[in-house]
Structures are given as structure tokens and as C-alpha cells.
Nucleic acid binder design. Structure first.
Lengths: 331, 331
DNA sequence: GACCCTAGCTAAACCGGTTTATCTCCGGCT
DNA sequence: AGCCGGAGATAAACCGGTTTAGCTAGGGTC
């Protein structure tokens, strides 16, 4: 049933040379005459030959795939448009396949990376969701596994990275709000174990005096809860910056249900723009996640190709001002 | 640099038996004594042995991966939460990896499936976006490649399938609108090349007299354009059913901008629920895409395991009534 | 003419498994 | 004693490539 494809052996027989000569000829390496090479190439294309990635991977060559492991409860994944955008962008710059697996723990993730690499199933991997002190960085270096850190904080040991300056972005958001007269600014943060959360925290703390930070986990529930708590405090903020779109939208709804006018009494800014923000008319920090993924893929391809790992900084996210932000009340 | 993992040869040496015996012992096959098997297993686990999927795939065994090829312009992918939900659901029921690639044409897709199968890179594949007369179905059968049709129309040759009854679902939506007094009902359809679009068209045509169908392509632009055209016609519909959430939200905004009251003058129903519909308060046909993906994965695992292909029908999508639908004007 | 070098090619090992053919030993049956 | 059968193990082939060692023929140098 399975279609038998021509192998290197068939070509060798048809061209009247040895397997080894065919391999050399096809890979453009020296060791065969030009006339032989031409004949082999002709026979190969005549037979519709395509090399077997599986066999090639076994003898320590390319695996024609890159890996991405996501750690999270599977159900939570579907709501994160960010990752799908990212993956879509990666695909646009890769001719090889993406080996994707979702696991439940960091340990599994690490084991999977090691296994994929040892078995030549991948040529390189993407590292996402970087932790504050991430063991994966050292692991990649010690394994010699080509890797690109996606969305970290710039320098990560000897690894290449593609990143955005969250510190500067947060500062710009705060400056924007300050220029509108806001003084009591709050922040609903993302998971505190993630590096970029810490970066944003730091930027927020250094540019806002007495800024309140409420931890969150990117869910609508967390956003609603945090907003309710902030608005109920004795001196409620006049502006809130949320770490993602879902929490921001939930926050906007809580404000509406409490009769708090947006933006008259409360300004809302979301990190990461999306259709959700567009339709909710939320001011958002917009970045091109697709392009970000594409950049990451290009970096990985380069590293796999032997290029020296370099750090690529993404353009600063752009603040898209919509209806949810305005001058502070009483200004 | 690359970590050297124990191979079957190392185990053989350590246990004092041959490679073949180790293979038999590890795979639970007869041909070795129980005492030898126990010793081999002990040595293997002591050495931390993990078989190489790559090598195993080469000698015509499992590839420990399943494939999914998506045909569309990469940039369009990121907005389709449906696929990410689906993939997340699939992952939840699979212990193996997913080989994912986005290509630009049907021809590339077919070539990729053939190649992956010939090279043992996958054990089976998912078929999505089924066309009206889809060449892939016959191809899978002739290749003998285990496959599951996701979201088709029930029977597809000898292939297993996981599907939802779009015909019945569309009928139920129309009946719901009729019960509210609507008579002039329109539909903004999806891509006409897709099988489920045709099914929905047929159900719509048979339950609505003089129903207008405007073709669309799932983008916000198409939804807005279609809605504008429908509302400008001489006898505008009192209800519109959209083939996805993005078009429905765009339609709702067009109605709002034209001063057409929703649901007072126009009822809107979206196919496929999402956060977008939730926040836009749109009545939507809701299905659990994550569970759908999980079911598809289970079906594929079963087929790969040698089970006879069967057709699994998903539960009927449930109509979630929100603020965008109500009694027809003048009723 | 002896020597060396190199281009061009082949044969064979190798990657890490699976599978088949073969070989040995032991027990049971007649 | 002789024959047969099966269990238990091994060696070797195989999957489809890459890579290395080695062989041969031809040309250049002294």
C-alpha cells in the first residue's frame, strides 16, 4: 500500500555509480566529476527523487524540523491568540515543519527538548515564556542545541534572542497617562514567575510613585477581581494598565457594571492589541506578533545555519489610543 | 557537545545479550525468556534508556507524531481562534507530537502528506477544511495513511471522521428565528469551496423561502461589506446569520453605524461562539472546539492503533441567546 | 623510470533500531 | 536410540541515507 519512493540506491543503479557517489553529487560536495554529477542529478530528477529526512536525521544530519514546547494546561491554550499569531509568523519564515507539543510541566519540557535533540528530531528550538532565572538557557548551551529565546529580556547567555523592550514600553505607557494628568495609576500584572512581568514591574515601579500592582494570571476572572478590588479601595486609581487584553476587557466590564465612567473616571490601557481591544475600543499597546514570530524564525534559521547568535530587538510596541483613555478626572 | 544517550547496543553489552534479544525484550514480544527480559529491562531503566524515534521510524515502525497541514496565507492564520482551539484539544488527547506546517496551496499539502508518510515522519494525519469533492480522501485511502476527517459531513469513503451536523444546526437556527417572527432572513456565508458551507447553504435554502445568501470569506471586511449591501437592499432582512464570529461582529458594527437597531430592527446570529461574541453580546451557535479537537485526536489514535474507521458525530452546537436577537419588528 | 600527488570513484562502516534466518539445546515420543 | 519440535538466543540483513578508508588511473617532477 505504502508508495515506494526511489531511494539513493535506485539512483545509483540507474546512473551506474555507487551510493556514496550519488550522495556526494546530490549534496554538491566535491569528490565526483562534473559529468557524473550532472548525470546523477538528471537521473534523480527523472525518478522524482526526494531524500528521506528520517534516514538523513539518523546519520547525524538535518532533521528538517524545529521544536516548540508549550507548558500550560491544554485548555488554556486556545484563548491565547498571541501564541497562534506567533506560530503563524514563524511558519511564514520556515520551510521546515514545526514540531509542537503541549506538556504540563517544566520538567517534561526539558526532557522533551533533550530527547528531540538526542534523536535528531529537531535542528533547533524556540524558547518561550522565559522565567526569571531560567534553567533552559544553560541547558541549551550545554547541549549545544541551537535555540532562540523569544520574548526574553535581551541577553541570555550565549543564546540568540528576539525580544521587545518591555521596560521602555511600560515607561512610555506611564508617561502617556501622566501627560493626561493621571497620578494614581495601577497595574494588573501577569504571572510573576515570567521574566517580562518582572521587567514591567520594575519599569512601572520606577516611573510611578505609589503605584499599586495587583497580580493576575491573564484570565478574565483575575482581571475582573483585580479591578473590583482597585475600584473599591479608598483612593481608587484613575488609570489602570493591564498585562493583557482579556484582563483589560474584563476590567472595562466591571467598571461599566459599577457605573464607573470610562474614560471619564477611569482610563484603561491593555498590553497587546487584539480584535478584542478593537471591538471594545480599548487603548492598547500594539505589537505585530506575527512579524515577531517571523523574526524569531529567521533568527533560528540563522543560528542553525551556523551564524553567531545575536540579539534582535523588536520595534517598540505602538500605543493605539482608542476610547478607553483620556484626561484624568478633575484636570 | 551532544549528549550521548545509551543505545540498544549499550544495553546488549551491559546485559550480555544480543541487540535482537534486547529489542524483543523491550517490546514485550516472545522470543526471550522471562529472566532475560527482566534483566534487560532492569539494565535499560538503569541506563535511562529511551528508544530513538528516528531510528525506529526508519525501520518501518512508529514515528511518534501525527501531521496537520493547513492551507492558507500564513498571516490569515493568527486570527482563526478556531484552529488553535482545535489544536489545543488535539494535544490534550495525544502523547505524541504534532507536526504542523502551513503551506500555500492544496498541491503542496498533498505533496507534504505523501512525503511525510513515505518517510515515516507521521503515523497519521488530520484532514481539515474539507472541500466539496476532496481529492485528499481518495489519496489517503490509496496511500493507506491513517487519517481522520475533521469537520466534514459524516461519511468520507473509508476514512474515519469527526463531524458536526451543520445541516441540522442551520435548520435549528432558522427555526429559532422563525419562531421570533422573522420571515426575511439572510445569510452571510463562508468560502463556497468548503463542504460545510455547501451543507449550510442547502439547509438554509430548504428552510427559508426567498432567503438571500451573500458569499463571504470570514474576514471582517467581507462581513461589513455583505451587511451594508443587505441593509441597503429594497427589502432588507430582519435577521442575518453569519458563518463566523468575525463577520458577525463586523456586521453588528455596520448596523450600529447605520443606525439600525439590534435587535429591534435586525437580529444577528453568529456561527461559532468566542470571546468576541461574548463581549459583543451576540447570539451565537456555540460548540466546544477544544472537545472537538480532543475527539478527533482520539479517533486518529484509534485508527492508527488499527481500529476500524468510524464516524463520530459531535454534539449539536448549542444556540446561546444573547442581546443581538429578538422578535422581528412589527410582531 | 621511480616517485608522489590528486581527482574520481567504490566498498564498507555507521547511525539505532527491527526483523528474519539460523543455530543450539533440551525434552518428549515412539 | 533416533527423531521431531519448540523455546531461546544470535548473527546478519535491512531501512536510506552519510562518511571514511582505500583503490586506481593519470599527470607532474626530478
Amino acid at each position: 500500500m505504502r508508495v515506494k519512493r526511489p531511494t539513493i540506491k535506485d539512483i545509483a543503479a540507474a546512473a551506474g555509480v555507487s551510493k556514496g557517489a550519488v550522495s556526494l553529487a546530490l549534496n554538491g560536495r566535491s569528490g565526483v566529476s562534473e559529468s557524473t554529477r550532472a548525470r546523477v542529478l538528471e537521473v534523480a530528477s527523472g525518478l522524482g527523487y526526494r531524500p528521506s529526512v528520517t534516514a538523513r536525521a539518523l546519520s547525524s544530519a538535518s532533521a528538517d524540523a524545529v521544536g516548540l514546547v508549550l507548558v500550560r494546561p491544554p485548555r488554556a491554550l486556545g484563548d491565547e491568540a498571541f501564541f497562534f499569531q506567533l506560530i503563524a509568523g514563524m511558519q511564514s519564515e520556515m520551510s521546515c515543519a514545526l514540531l509542537l507539543q503541549v506538556v504540563g510541566s517544566r520538567e517534561e519540557e526539558i526532557a522533551l527538548y533533550q530527547r528531540w535533540w538526542a534523536e535528531h528530531r529537531v535542528d533547533g528550538v524556540f524558547l518561550v515564556d522565559l522565567l526569571v532565572s531560567d534553567p533552559r538557557v544553560a541547558l541549551m548551551s550545554s547541549l549545544g542545541l541551537p535555540a532562540v529565546v523569544v520574548g526574553g529580556a535581551g541577553h541570555h547567555g550565549s543564546l540568540a534572542s528576539v525580544w521587545a523592550d518591555d521596560y521602555a514600553a511600560m515607561t512610555s505607557v506611564v508617561e502617556y497617562l501622566k501627560s493626561l494628568g493621571h497620578r494614581r495609576i495601577a497595574r494588573v500584572a501577569g504571572l510573576s514567575s515570567l521574566l517580562h512581568t518582572v521587567r514591567r514591574d520594575a519599569a512601572f515601579a520606577s516611573s510611578v510613585v505609589d503605584g499599586v500592582v495587583v497580580p493576575g494570571d491573564y484570565t478574565a476572572e483575575a482581571g475582573a477581581l483585580a479591578t473590583r478590588a482597585l475600584l473599591a479601595s479608598e483612593s481608587p486609581p484613575t488609570a489602570i494598565v493591564y498585562d493583557n487584553d482579556v484582563m483589560a476587557v474584563a476590567g472595562a466590564e466591571v467598571a461599566a457594571s459599577l457605573g464607573v465612567g470610562v474614560p471619564a473616571e477611569l482610563s484603561i490601557v491593555a498590553w497587546d492589541d487584539s480584535v478584542l481591544c478593537q471591538h471594545g475600543r480599548l487603548t492598547a499597546l500594539s505589537r505585530d506578533t506575527f512579524a515577531f514570530g517571523a523574526r524569531a524564525a529567521r533568527a533560528l534559521v540563522a543560528v542553525i545555519g551556523g551564524a553567531l547568535p545575536s540579539d534582535v530587538e523588536d520595534v517598540l510596541p505602538e500605543l493605539v489610543v482608542r476610547g478607553s483613555s483620556g484626561v484624568a478626572p478633575g484636570v
